[in-house]
Simulated scan of single mutants.
Amino acid sequence: MELKATPSHDATHRYLKKKQAHVTDKTYYNYNTTLKRLLEFLDERNIDDMRDVDSDEIVRFESWRLDSVKPITCRNDMRTIKNFIHFCETIQAVPAGLHELVIPTKVSEDEEICDDILTRQEAVVFS
Rank of each mutant, 00 (worst) to 15 (best):
D116N: 12
K70I: 11
A5F: 13
N83F: 03
E2I: 10
E57L: 15
N83M: 07
T73W: 00
Y29T: 12
R37L: 10
V94Q: 01
A11H: 14
I117Y: 14
M78K: 10
T33N: 14
T105P: 08
N30I: 09
D67L: 08
K17I: 01
R14L: 06
Q20Y: 03
L98N: 06
T24L: 04
H99P: 04
C114A: 10
A21H: 10
P95Y: 10
R120V: 12
D56Q: 12
V23H: 00
R75F: 04
D115P: 05
Y15T: 02
K36T: 09
Y31R: 01
T73H: 00
R60N: 08
V124M: 10
D52M: 12
S55P: 05
S108D: 06
K26Y: 10
D48Y: 13
T34L: 07
I91S: 08
E89M: 05
A5H: 15
A93G: 11
G97A: 01
R45I: 00
F84W: 08
H22Y: 09
Q20F: 02
H99Q: 07
R37E: 04
D25R: 15
D25I: 05
P95F: 07
E62W: 00
I113H: 09
T6N: 11
Q92T: 09
E44R: 12
A5N: 11
R79T: 14
N46E: 11
S108E: 13
D110H: 09
D116K: 12
L35S: 03
N30W: 11
Y29V: 03
H13L: 04
D67F: 04
D67A: 12
V69S: 06
E112Y: 09
D43A: 08
K4M: 14
R75W: 03
L38V: 02
I113A: 10
Q121K: 11
N83P: 01
C74V: 09
I72W: 08
M50W: 02
I103R: 13
A11R: 01
V94F: 11
K26L: 07
E40Q: 15
L38E: 03
T33E: 06
K36W: 03
S68I: 13
R65W: 03
F41A: 00
E122T: 09
Y28K: 03
M50F: 08
D67W: 06
L118V: 05
T33G: 06
L35Y: 00
S68V: 06
H86S: 06
F84I: 02
E57T: 01
D10G: 09
N83D: 07
I103N: 14
K18L: 02
L38Y: 01
I81Q: 00
Y28Q: 02
D48S: 10
W64R: 04
V107E: 00
I91A: 11
A5W: 06
F126Q: 09
Y28N: 02
L16R: 10
C114P: 07
R65P: 06
R14E: 15
N46I: 00
D54M: 10
E122I: 05
Q121F: 07
R37N: 08
F41P: 00
T119F: 04
G97D: 07
T90H: 15
Y29H: 15
P71Q: 02
N83W: 00
